[in-house]
């Protein structure tokens, strides 16, 4: 479904993403992890057209390299951000409508917007200004607005950051629901290995912009190179 081939991104002398190739299958929950500064969010920014790059990214067999972010959203790739982004001037319903009106191919679909509001459980807040939402509410709003674009792929950038155990559980259930009930492929960047091992089918580990390994989570967590450079020995010896 999404295929990156030999993608490289340089910021001056710094190589943020180095000759990276990966392939996300339709219907998967695909994880990306790595140390801080490994280039995980840069990979998202490359896929969504925020930066130019060398190499090629294809989506559904179509080359999306060079398309602008709004066109990529309209093609069916939605994303959320590590630091929650909201529209403080708009209400929850209006914010979610933005995704439907501008991102979905067939324009504003009021029924779909209502369905998404219920799906992300923001019914009671629908008329509230988004600035009044708590952190979890803001994350759900971002996910809801992204889902309103009727995406084929949803990319979540550290959705659990700053959340407590209950919120993490709730967000994990929401991500599963998105994948199973809506049939949306999910790519998730996360630091919580427990979240990644429980949710994902395949896990890509990168460091300094290069792939260390890409495999099933069980295999990845036993990979000596991953333990050495990212997880640490304490993680491997925790049981």
């Amino acid at each position: 479904m999404l295929k990156a081939t030999r993608v490289t991104k340089k910021f001056g002398e710094l190589v943020a993403v180095n000759d990276l190739s990966f392939h996300v299958q339709d219907g998967q929950i695909y994880g990306i992890a790595g140390p801080n500064g490994a280039g995980k969010s840069t990979v998202f920014n490359l896929i969504t057209g925020n930066y130019g790059y060398e190499g090629k990214i294809e989506f559904g067999g179509k080359k999306i390299t060079g398309l602008s972010p709004y066109r990529i959203a309209q093609e069916g790739i939605a994303r959320t951000f590590q630091i929650p982004q909201i529209f403080p001037s708009l209400t929850v319903k209006k914010s979610i409508s933005v995704g439907s009106r501008f991102g979905a191919r067939n324009g504003l679909d009021e029924d779909h917007v209502e369905k998404i509001i219920r799906f992300v459980e923001l019914e009671d807040e629908r008329t509230q200004k988004t600035g009044r939402l708590n952190l979890l509410g803001k994350k759900k709003l971002m996910i809801g607005a992204s889902l309103a674009t009727k995406p084929k792929i949803l990319m979540l950038d550290e959705p659990m950051a700053g959340s407590n155990a209950t919120e993490i559980k709730e967000l994990m259930n929401l991500i599963r629901k998105i994948n199973v009930e809506l049939g949306v492929t999910v790519i998730i960047i996360e630091h919580f290995m427990k979240v990644l091992t429980e949710l994902t089918e395949k896990l890509l580990i990168i460091e300094s912009g290069s792939m260390i390994c890409c495999d099933a989570p069980e295999a990845v967590t036993k990979n000596p190179e991953v333990i050495e450079s990212y997880l640490g020995k304490a993680y491997a010896e925790r049981d």
Binding site: T48, N50, S68, P69, Y70, A73, Q74, A78, R79, F81, Q85, I86, F87, P88, S89, L90, K94, S95, S97, V98, G99, R101, F102, G103, A104, M142, A145, S146, A148, T149
Partner: peptide, 20 residues
């Protein structure tokens, strides 16, 4: 709505299909 969305968060608005 597009104007307000772009004003509040251009990055997020564009990721939802709004052409800045």
């Amino acid at each position: 709505t597009a104007f307000l969305a772009l004003k509040d968060s251009e990055e997020f608005a564009m990721s939802l299909g709004v052409s800045a």
